[in-house]
Design a protein around this nucleic acid. Structure first.
Length: 280
DNA sequence: CTTTAAACCTGGTCGC
DNA sequence: TGCGACCAGGTTTAAA
């Protein structure tokens, strides 16, 4: 699935298409995704309503009207595509939103998700404003927000935590948006071993890590996100960041800094890639 | 409380 | 070509 940069990219695309326009119809093809889709409430919130905002919180996208918000999470394989045609006739299209742009031209938003780990849900205006919906209420800090002192936050929250630092930065209750790719990437740039216990990192090391998380996410956003397999932006195009990956899916290939072979290990059921020489 | 493992689901790839 | 094993960008739940 998309991590923060991919969702940010998607949100920008959807915002430019949807802001100021209005929903003219919603068609559901199946509702048995991760959580059953509340068709009635979603239709009520969207139908004939103008879009007032398109926002991101962690890996969630919120499309707001004055009656509430449509929440979208792409899970591992989800796509949300803005199309000028209604009929995409894909096997895994679960919802199609018909739309009239601000300039009056038609558009169709397709929610597609083969594995059905994604989410499509309704939020009240209050929940959307305060990110207090049950799916959003326990989310941690936004790493790229100006209000976030990420180094301070990570250091404070990590005291007493014996979990590996890699899993710690992937914990969305601590910090949102860092998934399996960018966790490995950020740790390589910060020259910190993914195996270290979170509580053992010094303030200086955490500062370095926070800086590299922010840099890695920003670079990925600029490149349009990373596509390994499934991710597509709102125009159904893959992202361009994979050419820049330092360690992810580079097992047994040389480290760009020291030429030591990149190692691949399992941590909490996910693979981690790192340089055993550079990362201490 | 923390940490791990399994579960949810489909499809692509790799080895035989 | 076919088949089974294993893997996948996430999150939650149950279990230890």
């Amino acid at each position: 699935m998309p991590e923060l940069p991919e969702v940010e990219n998607l949100v920008v695309g959807v915002r430019s298409a949807a802001l100021g326009g209005r929903f003219t119809g919603v068609e559901f093809f199946r509702d048995d995704i991760r959580e059953p889709i509340d068709k009635k409430t979603i239709t009520n919130i969207l139908l004939n309503q103008q879009v007032t905002a398109v926002k991101r919180r962690g890996k969630y996208m919120l499309i707001e009207t004055k009656k509430g918000a449509l929440g979208i999470h792409l899970g591992m394989t989800g796509r949300f595509i803005v199309d000028s045609a209604k009929e995409a006739s894909r096997t895994h299209t679960h919802v199609v939103f018909s739309f009239e742009r601000e300039d009056g031209s038609p558009a169709y938003f397709h929610f597609i998700d083969p594995r059905r780990f994604g989410r499509v849900f309704a939020a009240t205006p209050h929940q959307a404003k305060h990110f207090s919906h049950v799916f959003l209420q326990d989310l941690g800090k936004e790493p790229l927000s100006e209000d976030t002192d990420l180094a301070r936050h990570l250091f404070d929250e990590s005291r007493g935590r014996s979990a590996p630092i890699k899993n710690f930065i992937m914990d969305s209750r601590i910090v949102v948006g860092v998934g399996n790719i960018y966790a490995s990437e950020s740790l390589w740039y910060a020259k910190i071993s993914p195996l270290r216990q979170a509580k053992c990192l010094s303030e200086g090391e955490m500062k370095r890590l926070a800086k590299e998380i922010i840099r890695t996410l920003r670079r990925a956003i600029r490149a349009g996100g990373t596509t390994f397999r499934d991710y597509r932006n709102s125009e159904d195009k893959p992202g361009g960041f994979q050419v820049n990956l330092a360690v992810y899916e580079r097992a047994a290939k040389p480290c760009a800094v020291c030429t030591t072979f990149i190692e691949k290990i399992a941590q909490a059921g996910r693979f981690t890639y790192f340089c055993p020489f550079c990362q201490k």
